[in-house]
């Protein structure tokens, strides 16, 4: 078995894919360094991330396949699902062969599986665009803790940088210990495992107003918890103001 080992970044993965196309020794698996376990039969190829190589793959996917495919592989990459890198590699092998027609190959297992994974990531992104809750801190920063299944923080930040452009905010992925920090001009991604400061004076007021609204807007004769759960799975409740137990 030949393992390509990369640093875990998207650029690293694209570099690995570059090497896979130009190298004689093709990978059976592409793995993050942190996912790799020593293995007697493994032949390791260490991939050194190189921006010019990853850029070339990036541009080639966009031009020779489609920007939709580029987004798909990026979303799939963010799923962090074991083995997804190898799936992306196989998907691109097919993509470079048949070009933009790849989206029509709905009965091909490689395409299907990649669609399925990237759709799951896309769904969680869309869900969290609505389910994120900011809390106003006393230093006037709006702070939102999240614990998404997938590593979608970089897909959320651009949305809020346009929408909440005139306020300072932080989206904090507690699971991955990273934060998107926005200062009214630009957002950056940074490692972060600290705690937020204390709430602003008016925070408790708006939280209770929101909880009141949430309760009052439901029509009791139509109660339907199953439907509610289907759209708003329990795993997201932890950081939802309206679902916090009081």
């Amino acid at each position: 078995m030949i393992y390509y080992i990369y640093d875990g970044s998207f650029e690293g993965l694209l570099t690995a894919i570059y090497e896979a196309f130009y190298h004689d020794v093709k990978p059976d698996m592409i793995l993050k360094r942190s996912d790799y376990q020593e293995n007697l039969f493994a032949e390791r190829v260490e991939i050194v991330t190189e921006r010019n190589k990853s850029d070339r793959v990036y541009n080639a996917v966009r031009e020779k396949i489609s920007s939709r495919s580029l987004r798909k592989i990026y979303y799939a990459f963010l799923s962090e699902i074991k083995g997804v890198e190898t799936r992306i590699y196989h998907y691109l092998q097919l993509g470079f062969k048949i070009g933009r027609k790849i989206d029509g190959h709905l009965t091909d297992d490689t395409v299907l599986e990649l669609n399925r994974i990237s759709n799951k990531v896309g769904l969680e992104r869309h869900r969290l665009l609505g389910l994120i809750r900011f809390r106003r801190l006393d230093n006037d920063i709006y702070y939102a803790p999240i614990e998404p299944d997938y590593n979608i923080i970089a897909l959320l930040a651009p949305h809020f940088s346009k929408r909440l452009a005139d306020q300072n905010w932080v989206i904090h992925d507690l699971k991955r210990k990273v934060a998107a920090v926005y200062n009214r001009e630009e957002w950056v991604l940074t490692g972060f495992s600290g705690q937020p400061g204390s709430y602003a004076e008016d925070e408790a007021i708006y939280q209770s107003l929101w909880k009141d609204f949430f309760k009052n807007i439901a029509i009791t004769n139509r109660k339907n918890s199953r439907l509610q759960l289907q759209f708003m799975p329990v795993r997201y409740w932890k950081h939802l103001i309206e679902k916090e137990t009081t």
Partner: peptide, 17 residues
């Protein structure tokens, strides 16, 4: 402050679903 999202975004689901 704010913008529109063509697809619409749901922010929560009340007890009636």
């Amino acid at each position: 402050i704010g913008n529109g999202a063509s697809s619409g975004i749901c922010h929560s689901w009340s007890d009636d679903g």
